[in-house]
């Protein structure tokens, strides 16, 4: 195995593109190192991207924030303005692993690991995040929901890396929230999860919404039917029930050691409802 720490994204993309064997990108390493330890992967090349300028920065951009691919959960949580604007995303990112893992893990790593249970990803979907990709053919932007394609797989081409993620400026009276279910209070992988972002008007009526569910399908998924269930409502009991039902109806989960189909289907609905209520209140709607 070789270890490389390039100084630019272009060089990182070139190294990854040129390597014929298995490669891994190293940001926080909290997934890659586990894969190495378990012998799940024996990469020929590991590219540590932390030497790339800006990769560990949080920068205001067009009223939102651009977050470098190697920014850790702890750094996100320590950024007051970011947390105030995107409480759902930053809380989600801070649920990944332990406080030790928080010192290293990144949202982009969480995304590229391709797990349907990744905590940051439903919140990023809901927040309409856009990733910037560096590759052999230069730079491109992509909607975050186009990245995961299957468990452990992404749409990134060989040699492509994500260098940052943009959280676009929210319109006024918008807010987000993320909830996950785990058996303990910490340290577990989500058994089901829901990220919600919504906007309300002066009357408290929801005018826009994005709802994403995690751990209930092969990838995190954006569920339009959930958004439709609450848009045009004041999230009254009927809308809550419709949202819950739409979320459960969208689930295509599996039975595994972490939960049953039945459990995930039911709890995803509960979480979508509860997350929507939190987002609604944060946006300025009454409880």
């Amino acid at each position: 195995m070789q270890y490389a720490k390039p100084k630019t994204a272009t060089e990182a993309a070139r190294l990854l593109g040129a390597e014929t064997g298995v490669t891994r990108v190293l940001a926080g390493g909290t997934d890659v190192m586990v894969q190495l330890k378990a012998g799940m992967v024996e990469p020929a090349l590991i590219v540590d991207i932390k030497g790339i300028p800006g990769i560990r920065s949080i920068t205001p951009e067009a009223g939102g924030f651009r977050i470098g691919a190697a920014v850790s959960g702890l750094e996100l949580g320590d950024h007051a303005a970011l947390c105030a604007m995107f409480p759902g995303v930053t809380e989600a990112a801070q649920l990944i692993g332990s406080k030790q893992v928080q010192g290293r893990c990144s949202m982009v790593g969480n995304l590229c690991n391709g797990s349907p249970a990744a905590d940051a990803v439903p919140a990023l979907f809901a927040a309409n995040a856009v990733v910037r990709i560096e590759g052999p053919n230069g730079s491109r932007d992509a909607a975050v929901e186009t990245i995961p394609t299957a468990p452990g797989r992404t749409s990134l081409a060989k040699g492509e890396i994500i260098t940052s993620v943009l959280l676009p400026a929210p319109v006024p009276h918008s807010a987000d929230a993320y909830l996950r279910f785990i058996p303990r209070t910490e340290m577990d992988i989500a058994v089901a999860s829901a990220g919600v972002s919504l906007t309300i008007d002066a009357s408290g009526t929801i005018t826009a919404a994005r709802v994403a569910l995690g751990a209930v399908a092969p990838t995190v998924m954006l569920v339009d039917a959930c958004a439709a269930a609450i848009i045009g409502t004041k999230l009254d009991a009927a809308a809550q029930a419709a949202l819950e039902q739409a979320a459960s109806a969208a689930c295509k989960p599996i039975d595994d050691k972490r939960g049953t189909i039945e459990f995930r289907t039911k709890v995803a609905g509960v979480l979508a409802r509860r997350a929507a209520l939190i987002a609604y209140e944060r946006a300025g709607g009454r409880k």
Binding site: G29, M33, S98, Q100, V101, G103, R104
Partner: peptide, 15 residues
């Protein structure tokens, strides 16, 4: 590691 706590099992020596 540089003031932040980490699991040293999840860090490469080379890093």
């Amino acid at each position: 590691l540089d003031g932040r706590m980490v699991c040293s099992c999840l860090v490469l020596g080379a890093e």
